[in-house]
């Protein structure tokens, strides 16, 4: 087929007006749906901790703030990365670095003021073996929703878009998991929440190169 014929055929067959895609709105919507699904999964799977008590506790908001900051970082990266040819900007990185720096400082501060025999409890809590895996599991529905929502878009940097989606999904999943998890130290959050979120971003990037093709 000649290229000029293709152009004629394309524009004759379909020149409908299209509404400009809005990646920001579509990612926000799919991530929101995914997060709601993750909350439902958590409710059926592990249940919640006593929430009225948790909502009044500083450690709950420390974990939620950390997780949601990383989710925000992933969100900002994702909505840029998913636009063909767009610059990524630096805001996402600043937020991510600030979140990691803040939790790192809090963890170091807590750890240094605690006696040696408390260190294990601070860093490992009682659930370190399962925490990253559960965060990863809760990230699955969120990641899936985001990836499905990408079908109407035209991602050209599949690994990067996948990793950003994984970071967003992991951050949201960690925040959701906080509704159950009663670990209350900064060192635990810095180590194991970060591990779960990082794993989600890495796996998301690896899967992205396959799942996001169009």
């Amino acid at each position: 087929m000649k290229t000029s014929d293709l152009i004629v055929a394309l524009t004759a067959a379909d020149a409908r007006p299209v509404r400009q895609a809005a990646p920001t709105a579509s990612v926000a919507a799919t991530a929101g749906i995914g997060a709601a699904a993750a909350v439902a999964v958590l409710a059926l799977w592990l249940g919640f901790q006593p929430l009225t008590h948790a909502f009044g506790a500083r450690w709950f908001w420390m974990k939620a703030g950390f997780s949601l900051s990383l989710a925000l970082s992933g969100f900002l990266l994702l909505v840029r990365a998913v636009r063909p040819g767009a610059r990524l900007g630096l805001v996402w990185m600043v937020i991510g670095v600030l979140a990691l720096g803040a939790i790192g400082l809090m963890a170091a501060h807590t750890s240094m003021r605690a006696p040696p025999d408390r260190q294990t409890a601070l860093w490992l809590g009682s659930t370190w073996r399962v925490c990253p895996w559960r965060i990863l599991a809760l990230a699955i529905p969120i990641y899936a929703a985001i990836v499905l929502g990408m079908r109407s878009l035209a991602p050209t940097r599949l690994g990067l878009v996948g990793a950003a989606a994984g970071l967003l999904a992991g951050g949201l999943a960690a925040a959701v998991y906080g509704l159950y998890c009663q670990e209350n130290t900064a060192p635990f959050t810095a180590a194991w929440y970060s591990a779960g979120i990082a794993a989600s971003a890495l796996i998301g990037g690896a899967l992205g190169t396959r799942l996001l093709r169009w």
Partner: peptide, 12 residues
């Protein structure tokens, strides 16, 4: 060209 036409909604 096909991709550019079909994905024209994604240009901002």
């Amino acid at each position: 060209l096909l991709a550019i036409h079909l994905k024209r909604a994604t240009y901002d």
